[in-house]
Design a binder for these strands. Structure first.
Lengths: 338, 338
DNA sequence: ACTGGCACTCGACCTGGGCGAGTGCCAGTC
DNA sequence: GACTGGCACTCGCCCAGGTCGAGTGCCAGT
């Protein structure tokens, strides 16, 4: 068990290192934080902290820097989420209020997060699985060609072309549209398959093939691109850490290009609570020197997607967590309104 | 006027420099290209080329590197666009054929371009201005709330919420939908404003406000986001030029984040022909050390948007231009089919 | 007009030495 | 027993000096 003072020392090391980006020594520590003890004492404490694996020396006879384990302790026990100031909150809200559609909401959110945290922002589009159907529209573009438009309660719109086995009449299409909507409007995606199962039976034999095509396309749309899309921004912020440069930036950029990796990253924590993954806690190798702060957001009580930021393990955790939390909250509000 | 041999020397310099990323000297030149003359002669030629501003020395007594002017001459007179090989063409086509919707087409195109050129790819969404309306759909989500869905002939779908001044009946809405579609379906966006101008007059006084709201939202949609969206990818490729690093990568990343800058960049050349902007020819300062190769693409004969790549001025111009041209061609085909 | 030779320039690279931040240890003090 | 001041030691950083070699410009010769 670490004594109270040693925790203070660790906290001071993290804070200083985050500020200066340079290994911090015992003397500098006592000067900048009034710990009430001498450098020599701090040296002993640091030695103990190193023993326990919370800090390390990049090379003999240099200052110490926190390890992943050190940051973990800091985040868990020493850091308070720093709330946004009133003007900041207002700015967030104003900026998001100007959005015209879902794409715009997501785009603005990314920009906002990147600016606030000065890091790389990642925002997942509201997921389909947990959302509900607001409306299904069917449009005959050609005799045997139907466009399916699916509108969700989060404002997301998906469209698909359906090639029908046989031409379909305008009346039949209207009938199908009406029946379909009366069954699925307002229902969860996960419930839809059961609800439409017996729908073809209500139609003439000649139309059943077409109805089946439409339905199967609908069901595909529900599952297929479920969690697929996301938007990132603020990659230029990666260059602020000109320190251990190209070595670390390249794999990070590569990881960011791989949506699969990012989606897995965001998806890892099951619940929508704020999650911080530090350095090697990230499974993907390229992100071993970065931390990911993520949280769920949603239009109602329930989270429909996640957002977060990717930055160096040496980041301002309290500030970042505060910004991420605040942005998630306001995005949720915007979605609920629209 | 430069003699034929001097042009050959310039070509050789560009090719070598692009390959090695190192200043190239007279001796190396004669060894790798059989110019049929001695290094001393080449030295004289290089001296003349330098005089004219086509090449320069990074520091006294080092090899020469091409200047922007040198690349310009190379592109204009010395380089042939390198056509894609048959397997490459097939691969492009196969990859793009798998796309399920417009977003997917654009996303795949970006990936493809980035991979083929090993540079940063930029793809603009098919523009609204030059495309035509395929269908307009109106959905009553609440008594005084209508969702407007606009489908273009390039497969793009835009949606907007319309808050109506008064509740609108289902019949009136159907009427409006029918009238609207009969007027605008198949028409160019630029023609739409005139075509719908007198539409409110066909309705009862109580509904005119609502009709006007819907129309104004429609018109806004047509102009507002006209050229707005684009997608980029392959930023990790920037790190391949580990040479004059953070200095150049930062402003480039920043430029790429600014969609406005990119759109201006793509939009600069009015016609849809292949355009190469080299170094300082780019107005935006951050891109002064990069070249931009762009070309228009479209579903029919006419270009509806542009795509291109951003890379260091020291790039393989023939190969890049070949890849860009090929991708643009196949994307056009895909759009025409869907 | 081209070539071979030659002196010269100047950045890249290596080496060695001094500097200083930071450490670990130990004896001394409260 | 916990803390402190002192001291010797380590080791990366930075600078100066020296060498090396690629590349140049010029000139005399063919």
């Amino acid at each position: 068990m670490l004594s109270e003072r040693r925790l203070q020392v660790l906290r001071a090391i993290v804070q200083d290192y985050v500020g200066t980006e340079e290994p911090v020594g015992s003397k500098a520590l006592t000067e900048r934080h009034n710990l009430g003890v001498s450098p020599a004492t701090v040296r002993n404490d640091m030695s103990a902290l190193e023993e326990e694996g919370y800090i390390a020396q990049p090379h003999t006879s240099a200052g110490r820097i926190p390890t992943d384990k050190g940051y973990r302790l800091f985040v868990d026990r020493l850091a308070d989420v720093k709330p946004m100031t009133q003007p900041e909150r207002r700015a967030i809200q104003n900026f998001l209020d100007g959005a015209v559609d879902l794409d715009d909401v997501v785009a603005r959110t990314v920009r906002l997060l990147a600016q606030l945290t000065r890091q790389v922002a990642v925002v997942q589009y509201p997921s389909l699985t947990r959302s509900a159907v607001r409306h299904v529209e069917l449009l005959a573009l050609a005799p045997a060609r139907v466009m399916l438009v699916l509108i969700t309660d989060t404002g997301r719109v998906e469209q698909r072309m359906v090639d029908c086995p046989a031409p379909i009449g305008e009346n039949t299409l209207a009938d199908l549209r009406a029946r379909l909507n009366s069954r699925v409007t307002g229902r969860r995606f996960t419930d839809v398959p059961l609800l439409v199962q017996d729908l073809p039976e209500a139609f003439e034999a000649e139309d059943r093939g077409t109805v089946a095509s439409v339905l199967s396309t609908l069901l595909e749309t529900l599952v297929e691109r479920t969690e697929e899309r996301l938007m990132i921004g603020g990659t230029a912020n990666l260059t602020r850490f000109t320190h251990d440069f190209p070595l670390t930036i390249q794999p990070v950029l590569e990881a960011l290009e791989e949506q699969v990796v990012l989606l897995k990253l965001l998806g890892e924590a099951q619940d929508s609570a704020m999650t911080v993954r530090i350095g090697h806690e990230n499974e993907y190798e390229g992100l071993n020197s970065t931390s990911v702060v993520s949280v769920g957001y949603g239009s109602g009580g329930e989270a429909v997607a996640k957002l977060g930021v990717v930055g160096p393990t040496r980041m301002d955790y309290p500030g970042t967590m505060g910004a991420v939390r605040a942005v998630a909250r306001y995005v949720g509000q915007i979605l609920a309104e629209s």
